[in-house]
Design a protein around this nucleic acid. Structure first.
Length: 569
RNA sequence: UGGGGCGUGGUGCAAUGGUAGCACAGCGGACUUUGAAUCCGUUUAUCUUGGUUCGAAUCCGAGCGCCCCAGCCA
């Protein structure tokens, strides 16, 4: 925790509050946080922010961190989600040790507390229907009306609540409500429902219960039971804090401090479980782990690393401002990480045949290539080179635009780690006019790509030997939405209206270096001059890898060219 | 128009009465066997308006704007 003489890096407001608690001994100098997901969907990058915050704080203050499922609503929750969440939280590196809990673990205690509330005259059974209750609640500007059932006797409430539990009433017939204040300007305090009847099986408790506690009642007590000191949640629960405090105070139990921060928003995507579920259900994506999804499993399958995501969470900071973080920052974080650790490889995504007219037929040379210039310890490899090669279509232009210094008739480029070659001609398809083959001569004096005469070669391009390459499928991804804020419905359009029709591009006949044939599932590479890619963990077969693009390399030339096109318009 | 929050460059986060700073993005340059990476430089900000003060992003008043709340969801 001590960081020597380094200037104290600015702390966010939550850590400042905790610092104060440490000084005041508010919680005996203890820090205990938790991450409380509802298992009704997969975790996304916004949850990663919360996980990083909560687990990070626990680690920094020498405290503990719990994982607790907020599973109080059996109609929405599923085991599949529980399993995915456990996997994702673990992958993110948060350690709950032996403290994996479920709010449903506390159903018995919660029931007993409810009895106590009734006995104190602080809760009552109400027979109002949902619609009636809405009417009685009043509006934002008008106070509510008290229910005619509000003043039942404690005995009657006790009896009724026990019979609710016993299953004597159908769904919706009765609820248990906290007796607070129907005139409160805070609607959460207008006698909130704390128990409802649901004759439904729960994924953990089976058919033991037909009444289930509500979030506001459950969450504070679960925190209290677990000895959570700092209950960190998002801004929309700020209005609920008075209720959180009310329940704990009435029951006179351990009282954690709820603190709210602004949830993460990312541009060009959506971060709401409801919307993500819709994308999955309506098959706009292949599943929760589709590499285009902003879910943890999506990013993982896309090739993102834990380190990059945690680093991102650190960089975005924590505050109470509603904010939208630029996707470019996330991309920067993953590039930064992968640049240091990814093995380099030469892969041709859109192949164009290149023939070296003066190179001996049937000759093969093995060129020594550096595996990672950022990490010499990763060594070198030998890559076969021959007369007929593939290069990237985009690396040749019959008529080069301004500023283009790759291959074009008469120009010289370096074939990376191989030779300097000069373009002499190209062959075009008679029908389409498309260039299908490029002819060059190589300079034998430039073996390895060196220029003994000292001449400068402006461009170096990658290649792969036609006879030695193997074909593989590579998937390129673009942002899922074409609009920075797809959820903005001011123009009346649904968020799906802004789905990017080109967010996925499947390339089938990519030419890869021979050694990659045996790449392991999930293995990450930098395809030189193109981007970072990983072996898809779902669709790859042994000896037949399929690659997912994690993120492209920055592309200055593409930017220049785009600017040129724009200025012409 | 009730209540709760929030307003700092394009974006995010700092500055806690004393030189408005950091990161990303952008732009320019150096270097380069990846038009990558790296390095250097650089444009751009305190919602408005009064006040307190030697001095205000910070404190006070008034206004404006944005977000959240009327589930038996979380």
């Amino acid at each position: 925790m001590d960081n020597n003489n380094l200037p104290a890096s600015p702390k966010d407001f939550i850590r400042e509050i905790i610092d104060q608690h440490m000084v005041s001994k508010q919680f005996d100098g203890k820090v205990h946080t938790r991450f409380p997901p509802e298992p009704n969907g997969y975790l996304h990058i916004g949850h990663a922010k919360s996980i990083a915050l909560n687990s990070g704080i626990a680690a920094e203050y020498g405290g503990k961190f719990n994982l607790r499922f907020d599973d109080t609503n059996p109609s929405k929750e599923e085991v599949e989600y529980v399993e995915s969440i456990i996997e994702d939280v673990r992958w993110l590196g948060a350690d709950w040790e032996d403290r994996l809990f479920y709010a449903s673990d506390y159903f018995d205690q919660l029931y007993d507390y409810a009895i106590q509330l009734i006995q104190k005259g602080k809760a009552y059974v109400d027979d109002l229907s949902a619609e009636e209750m809405r009417e009685y609640r009043g509006t934002l500007t008008q106070s509510g009306k008290e229910s005619p059932y509000r003043n039942r006797s404690i005995e009657e409430n006790l009896d009724l609540f026990k019979r609710m539990r016993a299953g004597e009433f159908p769904d919706g017939a009765k609820v248990l409500r906290a007796k607070i204040d129907m005139a409160s300007p805070n609607l959460n305090l207008r006698d909130p429902v704390i128990y409802r009847i649901k004759h439904e099986d729960h994924h953990r408790t089976g058919d033991k219960w037909c009444i289930y506690p509500m979030y506001d009642y459950t969450h504070c007590l679960s925190d209290s039971i677990e000895g959570i000191t700092h209950s960190i949640c998002t801004l929309e629960f700020e209005d609920h804090r008075p209720l959180y405090d009310w329940v704990l105070d009435e029951l006179e139990v351990f009282h954690p401090q709820q603190i709210e921060f602004a949830r993460l928003n990312l541009n060009y995507t959506v971060l709401s479980k409801r919307k993500l579920l819709q994308l999955v259900n309506e098959k706009h994506v292949s599943g929760w782990d589709d590499p285009r999804m902003p879910t943890i499993s999506g990013f993982r399958r896309r090739g993102y690393t834990t380190e990059a995501i945690r680093n991102f969470c650190e960089r975005i900071g924590v505050a109470k401002n509603d904010s939208v973080v630029d996707m470019a920052l996330l991309e920067y974080c993953i590039r930064e990480d992968l640049n240091k650790r990814a093995q380099r490889a030469m892969t041709v995504l859109r192949p164009l045949k290149l023939v070296l007219d003066n190179y001996p037929e049937n000759q093969v040379e093995y060129m020594e290539c550096i595996n990672n210039p950022e990490d010499p310890a990763m060594g070198t490899r030998k890559v076969p080179f021959s007369k007929v090669l593939y290069i990237e279509k985009d690396d040749f232009r019959e008529t080069p635009p301004k500023g283009y210094f790759r291959l074009f008739p008469g120009n010289e480029v370096r074939l990376r780690y191989a030779y300097v070659v000069k373009c002499v001609s190209c062959v075009k398809d008679d029908d389409t006019g498309e260039v299908v083959e490029v002819h060059c001569t190589y300079d034998p004096a430039t073996q390895g790509g060196t220029t003994p005469d000292g001449r400068k070669i402006k461009s170096t391009i990658h290649w792969v030997s036609a006879d030695h390459a193997f074909d593989a499928e590579v998937r390129l991804y673009d942002r899922l939405f074409i609009k920075a804020n797809p959820s903005d419905s001011k123009d009346g359009k649904d968020f799906k209206h802004y789905l990017n029709p080109n967010s996925l591009e499947v390339l089938k006949d990519c030419k890869l270096e021979p050694f990659m044939k045996d790449a392991a599932s999930g293995e990450r590479f930098q395809f030189e001059r193109q981007g970072y890619f990983c072996v898809d963990t779902v669709d790859s077969q042994p000896g037949k890898p399929v690659f997912n693009q994690t993120v492209s390399l920055r592309d200055t030339w593409a930017k220049i060219e785009q600017a040129q096109k724009k200025s012409k318009k």
